[in-house]
Amino acid sequence: MFWMQLDRVMGYWPVLLKGISMTVSLSILSLMIGVMLGFAFGMIRAGRNRMLAQIVGLYVDFFRGTPFLLQVFIVFFILPEIGIELSAFASGVVALSNVAACFIGEIVASGIKAVPLGQSEAAASSGFTRVQQMRHIVLPQAVRIVTPALVGQFVLLIKDSSVVSAIGLLDLTRSGWVIVQSVPNGLLVFGIIGFSYFVICYPLIYLSRRMERRGQATIL
């Protein structure tokens, strides 16, 4: 019985593959946008402009403090009401990269604040502009400090991407729902789905742990 079911699940490999590629492409795209936006958020949060830092802080807190599923619904169902109509994939990318940016922004801000003040003082004393100080002196050190936390966040992002199955995207999770309708063994099907997520995430977990072990003294 078990082997027959496993055989049937394996017969659905094109669906599984489609789900995996959707999850991976959704994650990678959201990751790239989220990192860029997140660094901008982080620099503003740690920056000198109090007002701007607080506005971004409020925005970030809102998205960190509400369920991600709700955010996906807002993008997919509510935005069209005000004339912004996005495909399911685009909605997924918008919601995911936005929430990723919020978390990444806080991580980056904490990294920037962890770089000793003497570093930017030394750079300022040599005539570096604020932007140059950030780019050549502060950010490289901040990134080194927060890399393990960032990679951990990337893993969370991949797992959170499963939520977009709720708006009909055929991602890895939804491919499980599809398969389980013809192979009525939820444990088996979602066991395989879970394992697939693990295979995608594990290299990142491994990387993060290795970087943590090597510590901050090492020069990347």
């Binding site: 570093q119 030394a122 004393s125 005539g127 050549h136 050190q141």
Partner: peptide, 28 residues
């Protein structure tokens, strides 16, 4: 105006030579 700090404040992610050449390259 050069400034030398009590705590040195060298850039830890740069070699000695890079510490010395960074400002001349990017500022000068």
């Amino acid at each position: 105006v050069g400034f030398v700090f009590q705590q040195f404040n060298l850039y830890p992610h740069k070699t000695a030579l890079e510490n010395v050449t960074l400002a001349p390259v990017h500022v000068r």
